[in-house]
Design a protein around this nucleic acid. Structure first.
Lengths: 125, 125
DNA sequence: TCGATATTGATAATCTATTATCAGTAAGGA
DNA sequence: TCCTTACTGATAATAGATTATCAATATCGA
């Protein structure tokens, strides 16, 4: 039987308050503010369980970085800041990508990875 | 002074004959056909040197997979087959991606990752 | 052809991210 | 409140990819 622990509550709260996908370390750091002493292993364990339950989704970035965010957000893509390294959600594309691929290929999914400077970093540049 | 070894020649030939970006293991396997006994360390060493020389470019895929291809190909994107796992080059986009990002953000690069079934796998499905 | 040395093959070492272990703790039904 | 046991924190273990080591080899200028 699943228990509603302080640690799990803290982790879920982090996502509820976030407007962008987060990496493990960010989740751990933010969760510690609500639940001092929470261990990294607990973060890993809960993320895995929440993923399996479909209560979180993973975003695989180039380089092997894995980010997590709440599901249910409609189709969207990601923007990675080259300066602060944060990743942001950007709105859906309304693009005809099928036209790009060769004949005979079957398009099933697509992911658009934008990068550059986020608003905070662009101001400082 | 750089030497033109059989191993380096074999590795470069592999790329000249390939129409898609390759991963380390594929490069190693293909190079062995031209240079029996070539070691994986030699493949890593040469790829690193060729990258630094700008004679190859790296393609970072989600999940941490790194692929290599010859540079100079004009702006293009990638299609990953969900069945055979191979990655293919696809033609450039002529898309207005700037319109997707929030105000204040500065777009510098973009990568479009398509996935589905390649022609070979689509036929079998 | 000879010799200096860049390069190689085999594999040990390293690195980093994730998972397993295990004794102690705390959630929540009875 | 008590008791069962899911969960936790600390950290050891693991796994997979890349790099370092080092004696042996092969390149290529002289």
């Amino acid at each position: 039987m699943e228990r509603n622990t302080q640690q799990r509550q803290a982790i879920l709260k982090v996502f509820e308050r976030s407007t962008r996908p987060l990496k493990i370390q960010e989740i751990h750091t933010a969760a510690k503010k609500r639940c001092t002493g929470i261990g990294i292993a607990t973060v890993y364990r809960n993320l895995k369980a929440l993923l399996e339950d479909g209560r979180l989704v993973a975003v695989d970035m180039p380089g092997g970085l894995v980010l997590y965010e709440l599901p249910g957000i409609e189709h969207h893509h990601h923007f990675s800041c080259n300066s602060c390294e944060k990743v942001f959600d950007v709105e859906a594309c309304g693009l005809n990508l099928q036209s790009l691929i060769p004949n005979g290929f079957k398009l099933e999914q697509h992911e658009i990875l934008l990068s550059g400077l986020c608003d905070s970093c662009a101001i400082r540049a």
